[in-house]
Write a protein that binds this DNA or RNA. Structure first.
Lengths: 245, 245
DNA sequence: GCCTATTTGTTCGTATGTATC
DNA sequence: AGATACATACGAACAAATAGG
C-alpha cells in the first residue's frame, strides 16, 4: 500500500481515531502501548509515534518514558483580573491560593531606548532589573522581569526578596499605591530557557504580558514583562459599569 | 558511537546548531536541503528531520514540500485595543488596515447553561449563532463565534453578512451603541479544524478571547468567543487615567 | 539491591509518494 | 521529463526510564 492514499496521511487517520476515542471517553487515562496501537491499526510503530506526537503537540496527551502515554487532564485555570488595579498576590489570595515570588536575579542596568520610553526617563538612567518567578501552590506559574528607577526605589530588590510581592516592596520604598497604565498581550511558544525556569514541557505556550504601572500622579513606576504558562492562566478584564443616570 | 551520548540526543544538538546559525545570521532565508544537512552533521536524514521538526514547532522555520525549508520572518503584530469600547473593524481601519468579516455559518440554537448565564436569559432561549472569519489585508486573522438573542436581533445574520461588521449589524438592528463588559483571555494550540479555517500551520498558537458586550443600560448584547492567530496579534488594554484633583 | 520485562526515545537503513523547479 | 526536495511509511536495533518480583 502506498503512503498517503486518499491524500490523507496514515498517521493523521491514526491520530484522528485516537483523538475521537479520547473525546468520547473510550480512553480515559493511559493509552495502550505504542506497539499495541501499531498492531491494532496495522501500521508501523513509527506511524503511531507520529500520530501521538501530533496529539501531544495539541496538548491532548503526554508521553512518559518507561511509563506510557497518558491523557492530559484539563486543569481549571487560575483567574487573574487585569485592570487599573492589577495586583498579582492579592488576586491569588482571593482565590484561596498561596502565591510566593522568588527572586531569581537582580542587577543594576542602564535604561535602553525601550525602557527609557516606557519609564519616561533618559536612556542610560540607572535602573534596577528584577527577575522573578511566581510560584502558586508550589508550582511555577509565571516568570517576570521588572525595571524600576534605581534612584527612586533604591532598596526595591531587598524589599522584594524579603516580601515576595511587588506591591509590598513598593510600599516599603514609600509608594503606598499605584495603578496599571497599560497592558499589552501576546502569546508565544516557550523557549528552552523559560521551559527550564518554569519547569514546564518544552512545547508549552506562554501568555506574555508587557505592562507599565504608574503612581497616582501618573508617573511610571515599573515596566514589567511577565510570561504566564497559558494552560494554567486566564486573564480577565472587567470594565466597571459607569453609573447610569 | 552510541546514540544519546552525553545524555543529549543527537537531534537536539543538530537543532541547537541550526538555531544558532539562524540567530547569528549565518542562515538568513533558505536552509540547506535535508540531505546536505545530514551529510554536514554526519547523521541520518531522519535525525535532521527530527531537528527541523523541533525548530518548526518553535516557529523558527517552515518546511515547504518540494521547495525547501525556510527561516520564518517575524512580522510586526497588528495591535488590537481592548477596553470598554472595543471595536474590531474600527481598530483595523485606524491602523490603515483593511478588515473584512466573512460569514462562515449561521444558525438558530437554544441557549445552553453557559450562554444563558452570559446573556442573562433562560436556558433554551432562542439565539442566533454567528460564526465568522476576520480577514485583514486579505489574510485570515481570527475566527469568532457570537451568540445574540434571536428575539431582540432577528435580522442580525443578514445584517452581518452584508456589512461584515458586528457594530454595523447591530446598528441596523436598532442598537446604536454598546460597550464591552468583560473579556477573558487564554492561549491554546490551534486545532486541526481551526488551522484549516484560518489557513495557518497546524502548530500555530491562538490567543483566545471570550467576551460579553452589553448595551448602555447594562443588558448583555452578545457573547463572543474569538480565536486570534497569536503571532499576528497584540492585544492592548489601556486604563484611562482618572482626572486628578 | 538486582534483574527483568515493559515502554517510550533515538538512530540508522530503505523505499516510495508528491510537489516544485 | 527529469532532477531536486520534502513527506510518509516500514523495518531493525539499541538506549533509557520505569515497574515489579
Amino acid at each position: 500500500m502506498s503512503p498517503e492514499t486518499d491524500g490523507i496521511a496514515l498517521w493523521r487517520r491514526v491520530a484522528d481515531d485516537i483523538r475521537s476515542a479520547i473525546h468520547d471517553g473510550s480512553i480515559t487515562q493511559a493509552l495502550p502501548p505504542e506497539t499495541d496501537l501499531a498492531a491494532r491499526f496495522s501500521v508501523n510503530r513509527h506511524t503511531v509515534r507520529r500520530a501521538l506526537a501530533a496529539l501531544a503537540a495539541e496538548g491532548l496527551v503526554r508521553a512518559e518514558r518507561g511509563r506510557g502515554t497518558f491523557v492530559n487532564a484539563a486543569k481549571p485555570r487560575i483567574v487573574y483580573p487585569i485592570g487599573a488595579r492589577t495586583r498579582f498576590s492579592e488576586s491569588m489570595v482571593k482565590q484561596s491560593l498561596e502565591p510566593s515570588g522568588r527572586l531569581i536575579r537582580a542587577e543594576r542596568v542602564a535604561a535602553d531606548a525601550t525602557m527609557a520610553e516606557l519609564l519616561e526617563c533618559r536612556p542610560g538612567t540607572a535602573l534596577h532589573r528584577l527577575e522573578s518567578l511566581a510560584v502558586v501552590e508550589g508550582v511555577p506559574l509565571s516568570r517576570s522581569v521588572s525595571h524600576f528607577s534605581a534612584e527612586r526605589f533604591p532598596g526595591i530588590i531587598d524589599a522584594y526578596a524579603e516580601t515576595g510581592s511587588i506591591t509590598e516592596a513598593l510600599k516599603r520604598e514609600g509608594l503606598s499605591d499605584y495603578r496599571r497604565r497599560e497592558t499589552r498581550l501576546t502569546a508565544e511558544r516557550v523557549s528552552m530557557k523559560d521551559a527550564d525556569l518554569l519547569s514546564c514541557p518544552s512545547d508549552a505556550i506562554l501568555l506574555i504580558s508587557r505592562a507599565v504601572d504608574e503612581d497616582l500622579q501618573g508617573r511610571p513606576v515599573q515596566a514589567i514583562r511577565t510570561k504566564f504558562l497559558a494552560d494554567r492562566m486566564e486573564l480577565v478584564l472587567q470594565n466597571t459599569s459607569p453609573t447610569m443616570g
